[in-house]
């Protein structure tokens, strides 16, 4: 096979598949969660890493997926499949609507506008506490967490389902960024004016990218509800807008596998920090500063630069 990029990413998938049989129980569950959250990070990467839209409001889309799936399940007795679809639709529509307004701005204004929309969404979840139970959140009962007969509360099934979602997201993203449209996205990031002169409409390109990013985020949110059985306002707070940005930057913005790597890195950073010391935040903080000093473009970004031309071929 001459497609080195496909090869490297299929290699990652193979490792993750092998991990299914090899990981001890705790890490098996942890990686399943990282896979779901990586889909969210990949969505963020499409908007930020490739198209250059610095959003601080993606928690709104993640939460739309989360509640879009959780509310029909718990309130209206929907089954897993339609609920998942509802989460996807809710997040995608919301991302498009936010995009229509927010994309009138750019740069820091875009950041603040998305932040404020997300804050309004967060407050709305609290305000509608009668149905959402606000900050406490709701539990999605175990019997409801099924899709096509598969019990997503079961550890092994959940890992495989999470891996399937992740692989779909990963390969679609790989295809996207190497497609002509993907190159236009990057052109928007690098120089919007030049892309405009080449005949591309920045607004529609960015709107499409943001909507797709919302779809990814919503898929992760809806999967989260079904796989982990909980929906709460803390998952819609500003922290959950900052996290995907952090994951993407740690792993390498504008790399297909970077979001996964960043998410994994951050999870185990927090996890192991608590083993070393009770001053966990200090360890996490120092590690972040150190990482960024050594690899300002993120782990995969640094690796790609080091590999030179080969790097671009293996790690788009």
């Amino acid at each position: 096979m001459r497609d080195r990029a496909l090869l490297s990413h299929l290699g990652l998938v193979a490792v993750l598949m092998a991990a299914h049989w090899m990981l001890p129980a705790y890490h098996h569950d942890a990686v399943a969660k990282v896979l779901v959250l990586s889909v969210y990070a990949m969505g963020y990467n499409i908007a930020f890493g490739y198209t250059g839209m610095l959003s601080l409001g993606h928690a709104l889309f993640f939460a739309a997926g989360l509640y879009g799936a959780a509310m029909p399940l718990t309130l209206w007795g929907w089954t897993g499949g339609p609920a998942l679809a509802a989460g996807l639709v809710a997040a995608t529509v919301l991302a498009a609507a936010v995009g229509l307004l927010a994309l009138r701005t750019r740069g820091v204004s875009f950041m603040i506008v998305t932040l404020m929309f997300a804050q309004a969404g967060y407050l709305t979840i609290l305000y509608l506490g009668r149905w959402t139970r606000g900050d406490e959140g709701i539990v999605i009962a175990q019997p409801l967490r099924r899709i096509m007969g598969l019990d997503l509360s079961d550890g092994a099934t959940r890992y495989l389902a999470a891996l399937l979602l992740f692989v779909l997201g990963l390969l679609a993203c790989l295809h996207l960024v190497r497609s002509p449209f993907g190159r236009v996205m990057v052109a928007m990031r690098e120089n919007e004016e030049r892309a405009r002169m080449l005949g591309y409409n920045p607004f529609t390109v960015k709107l499409a990218a943001l909507t797709l990013s919302g779809l990814y985020s919503g898929a992760a949110g809806a999967a989260y509800a079904l796989m982990f059985g909980y929906a709460g306002a803390s998952l819609a707070g500003v922290q959950y807008s900052i996290l995907p940005m952090l994951w993407v930057l740690l792993g390498g913005a504008g790399t297909v596998a970077g979001p996964f790597l960043g998410c994994l890195l951050m999870f185990y950073l927090i996890d192991y920090a608590s083993v070393i010391t009770s001053a966990t935040l200090l360890v996490v903080g120092v590690a972040l500063v150190a990482l960024v000093l050594f690899a300002p473009k993120g782990a995969l970004g640094a690796l790609r630069d080091r590999l030179g031309k080969e790097g671009r071929a293996w790690l788009p």
Partner: peptide
């Protein structure tokens, strides 16, 4: 430590129980 966070709380539970 669960960071008083529901997502981390669930992870910590798994860590204590299975690891």
């Amino acid at each position: 430590d669960d960071g008083t966070d529901p997502a981390r709380g669930a992870e910590v539970f798994g860590k204590l129980a299975t690891q």
